[in-house]
Design a protein around this nucleic acid. Structure first.
Length: 278
DNA sequence: ATTCTGTCCTGTAGGC
DNA sequence: TGCCTACAGGACAGAA
């Protein structure tokens, strides 16, 4: 089965919930097929470090998954554009998916398989999360209380970048990616090209509300399958059918019938309604 | 310090 | 069928 997964917060959160079944399970061995995905450690050292450790917790921070091991040290997984974490029963003489880059062999007769076609993802092992630049610099969680009007107002004062690019800046807010940035700004009625410092209080409030509502609803729907993503249990996310602008270039806006625009910002496509978003 | 651009990779879809 | 280009839910380094 070829599954692609291009995960933002709701997709990673869905996987985190699926992976709770691994709590208390021991990592027996790890087989690294592509060393590139091990970013701060060699495959040999990774194996020594995590072998025979029990997975005591699995949580999410931004778009990253954090495995807390029985020695209180961390194994982190960032899925990048095409990373997947799948729990599969061990089977003899069955070849792994071509995209399989790391296989964690577990004490419950299952494998945790890390697939990553493009290898933009990264696996790290550290004593403290701050030892990884990504975590050290990560901004607030968009579903947390800290992501509020006051926080955004203080930050945008000195930011001139387009608001859509700001929403994707993980140092500002952790977990929003290309799809949800477009969706949030459509719901908030804000032009994605608008300079962040020019947002007024009403617009900032709309961003807070739209972010929380959309991310929560997507989690409820187990994320967005825009192409062929499947979660760890093999099901599709259902949020794709609820997308209102992403991928709808040239189609009528669901509110005003104006044709949806597609532009490029920071090398990523942005979709918006030129009439509803100002 | 912030912003912008190019780059890391592989695979697939669409045009000719 | 095949070849070529464009594009893909991310995040960095280095330049401006």
């Amino acid at each position: 089965m070829v599954n692609k997964l291009m995960p933002e917060l709701p997709e990673v959160e869905t996987i985190r919930r699926d992976l709770q079944q691994l709590k208390g399970i021991k990592i027996i061995d790890v087989k690294v097929i592509a060393a590139r995905v091990c970013r701060n450690i060699t495959p040999e050292k990774l194996a020594i470090r995590i072998k025979n450790k029990i997975i005591s917790d699995i949580y999410r921070r931004g778009k990253a998954l954090v495995f807390v091991l029985s020695d209180k040290k961390f194994l982190t997984v960032q899925l990048g554009m095409t990373g997947q974490l799948l729990v599969k029963s061990k089977q003899k003489n069955v070849e792994y998916d071509k995209a399989a880059k790391v296989v964690f062999k577990l004490s419950n007769a299952k494998n945790l398989i890390y697939n990553d076609q493009r290898m933009f993802g990264r696996i790290c092992a550290v004593d403290k999360l701050e030892g990884i630049d990504y975590f050290a610099a990560l901004g607030v969680e968009p579903l947390g209380e800290q992501f509020n009007v006051k926080y955004i107002s203080e930050h945008v004062a000195r930011r001139s970048i387009p608001v859509k690019v700001l929403l994707m800046d993980q140092k500002f807010v952790a977990g929003i990616g290309n799809i949800y940035a477009s969706e949030i700004l459509f719901e908030a009625g804000i032009d994605p090209r608008k300079r962040s410092s020019l947002l007024d209080a009403k617009q900032i409030s709309a961003i807070v509300k739209a972010s929380k509502r959309i991310l929560k609803e997507s989690i409820k729907n187990r994320g967005t399958t825009f192409r062929d993503y499947r979660d760890a249990s093999g099901s599709k996310g259902r949020f794709a059918e609820k997308l209102k602008v992403y991928g709808r270039e040239g189609l009528p806006c669901i509110k005003c019938k104006t044709l949806i625009n597609n532009i490029v910002q920071a090398q990523r496509s942005t979709f918006y309604c030129p009439k509803c978003q100002i």
